[in-house]
Write a protein that binds this DNA or RNA. Structure first.
Lengths: 182, 182
DNA sequence: GGTCGTTCTTAAGATACCTTAAGGCAACCG
DNA sequence: CGGTTGCCTTAAGGTATCTTAAGAACGACC
């Protein structure tokens, strides 16, 4: 965080004490649909995914997250309504999380933190828009090629059917694309 | 803005003076691809659209905006790189815009403004995610029905081929869907 | 009041992607 | 060690949506 915004030593200490560690085993759930998300969560180590179910049957992956990313059901967190997403660890993972109320207090005590999160949301918005535009105007093959070049590290850590889900195609079709490419 | 965050009279005055009015005629362009966006823009009156071109030929509408909404190529604004989107008035419109540098100064002078924009981006993110999830997991017909119930006012103000573009389908197919529905 | 651009519709043929079903292979588990 | 489970592939047939091309409707302008 100090890389983005300047903090005094005091402030840095205050920020640090506001976050709590959470460890997760592979396949462990961090958030279930229906629960209300009360924490902003930073991934210190590991790999997770957030997804939702349509008609209670098929999974659609919204986001992967690895070290250095944030992951959450922001809709639930911001509106304090039951989550529509699930969040699950793909590998053993370590998170740093801060409670909503704590963060609110921190906004008042350390304005730089509010700036930090404003900027976080700005870039998150832009990244999401980028992904939206991309996935809507490109073919599945183009999306896969782009995913692969952008997130090679993730591709190697998650099963292929999850990549397919992230790209909004079936595993079968991704398999066909891969065959076609090589 | 005072509806969201409390401002002193002084602050309100300062904020008010920071915004400039811009009037646009129907079909007039507000932002061209390649220009760099330097303003946050609030729609006081009228109707606009932002869109991008793929392979320099087909238009894809990203967003409509009417009174009370904000509209911009945020990617360009935030990264200060050439816009990839166009913004155009659909009807005669009136905007209130604030320059990036002015807004930055305002963030320091009036912290409540920074809070306002943090919250703006939070809700913008959530709304965009909602749209993304929706448009990816629903059929064209479902998307149209939802658009219609959510934005009846917009549907009545823009030509049908723009609605089709927003829904990521061809005008021909939207026509077929409408026939099918009635 | 006619002509002209703009928008919407119709229909035939094409394509991207899905569904279902089956089999293979590697990893784990008793 | 053999069985089970999880993951990936292959292939046949199906569906949603697109492309192209043409014409109809409608308002705008001379």
């Amino acid at each position: 965080m100090q890389e983005t915004i300047p903090l005094t030593e005091n402030e840095a200490e205050l920020v640090k004490r506001s976050f709590k560690e959470v460890a997760l085993k592979k396949k462990e759930m961090l958030l279930f649909k229906g629960e209300t998300s009360s924490h902003m969560r930073f991934i210190a180590d590991g790999c997770l995914r957030s997804y939702y179910m349509d008609e209670e049957t098929k999974e659609h992956i919204i986001q992967f997250g690895i070290e250095g990313w944030w992951i959450n059901d922001l809709y639930s967190y911001l509106t304090q309504t039951p989550a529509r997403q699930f969040i699950q660890a793909i590998d053993d993972s370590l998170l740093l999380q801060i409670h909503r109320d704590t963060l609110r207090r921190l906004y008042d005590e350390v304005p730089a933190v509010e700036r930090f999160f404003r900027m976080k949301f700005e870039t998150a918005y832009v990244a999401l828009q980028d992904r939206t535009i991309n996935s809507m105007s490109k073919t599945a093959e183009e999306r896969y090629v782009e995913f692969r070049s952008k997130y090679r590290d993730i591709e190697q850590r998650v099963p292929q059917y999850m990549v397919a889900s992230y790209l909004k195609i079936t595993p079968e079709f991704l398999s066909a694309i891969r065959k076609n490419l090589s």
